[in-house]
Amino acid sequence: MPTLTFPTRLRQRFPLLEPAGVLVFTVGLVTYIGVKDPNEAGHYPTCPFLMFTGFYCPGCGSLRAIHALVHFDIGTALSLNILTVCVMIPMAVFHYVRWATERYLGRSIRKRMVPASFIWALLVGLLAFWFLRNLEPLAFLAPYGVAPGDLKWR
């Protein structure tokens, strides 16, 4: 019988230790974003991609969207980054719950959580969102519906 290492024994004795640590970290981070308003200058750095190119990246507006969600302002959150609110957060919650459940039930964590086709579809969707939110006719996908050309730098 092989000797179990310390992390393996700890993981067997406390199966929810790692999921609890991730949950505490996430709650702390979301609480910080909820308290420190990203709409006020000086709390967070500007998106480097936006600063250097003048175009929105797929993540632009995510901090503000999370801040709006913390304050139960779903409409504003959707207008800031619909991808984060409708795809990324639900997907992260789903995979976290799946991981924590498998740990709690003592099942081995699968190496492949999703098929490769899902990863490719997500990548194509992310790239399409990145491109489309920077087009003038689809400015509603941009944060607050402001097209990149309409940005006014201070």
Score class of each variant (00 low, 15 high):
residue 9 R to L: 14
residue 154 R to I: 12
residue 2 P to R: 14
residue 137 P to N: 09
residue 2 P to T: 13
residue 103 R to W: 01
residue 33 I to N: 04
residue 43 H to P: 01
residue 43 H to S: 11
residue 141 L to E: 08
residue 88 M to R: 00
residue 42 G to P: 06
residue 129 F to E: 07
residue 48 P to T: 09
residue 32 Y to Q: 01
residue 98 R to D: 13
residue 134 N to W: 03
residue 18 E to K: 09
residue 100 A to D: 05
residue 128 A to L: 15
residue 3 T to C: 10
residue 79 S to N: 11
residue 61 G to W: 01
residue 28 G to F: 04
residue 100 A to I: 11
residue 119 I to Q: 02
residue 45 P to V: 04
residue 131 F to G: 09
residue 118 F to Q: 09
residue 54 G to N: 08
residue 42 G to V: 05
residue 150 D to A: 15
residue 126 L to A: 13
residue 59 G to K: 06
residue 24 V to Y: 02
residue 70 V to N: 03
residue 100 A to C: 08
residue 23 L to I: 05
residue 143 P to L: 10
residue 48 P to Y: 09
residue 91 M to Y: 15
residue 67 H to L: 09
residue 106 G to T: 05
residue 140 F to S: 09
residue 78 L to Q: 05
residue 2 P to C: 08
residue 119 I to F: 03
residue 18 E to S: 03
residue 130 W to N: 13
residue 8 T to K: 15
residue 4 L to K: 12
residue 151 L to Y: 04
residue 102 E to M: 14
residue 23 L to R: 02
residue 12 Q to S: 06
residue 65 A to L: 05
residue 112 R to K: 14
residue 74 I to N: 01
residue 55 F to L: 15
residue 132 L to G: 04
residue 56 Y to S: 04
residue 106 G to S: 06
residue 144 Y to D: 14
residue 17 L to P: 01
residue 27 V to Q: 01
residue 128 A to I: 14
residue 87 V to T: 08
residue 97 V to I: 12
residue 149 G to S: 15
residue 30 V to F: 10
residue 134 N to Q: 05
residue 35 V to R: 12
residue 41 A to R: 15
residue 133 R to N: 07
residue 126 L to P: 00
residue 71 H to M: 04
residue 25 F to G: 10
residue 126 L to S: 14
residue 130 W to I: 02
residue 64 R to D: 03
residue 89 I to V: 14
residue 150 D to W: 07
residue 139 A to K: 15
residue 28 G to V: 07
residue 112 R to E: 15
residue 145 G to F: 06
residue 59 G to Y: 03
residue 129 F to G: 10
residue 70 V to P: 00
residue 83 L to A: 13
residue 93 V to P: 02
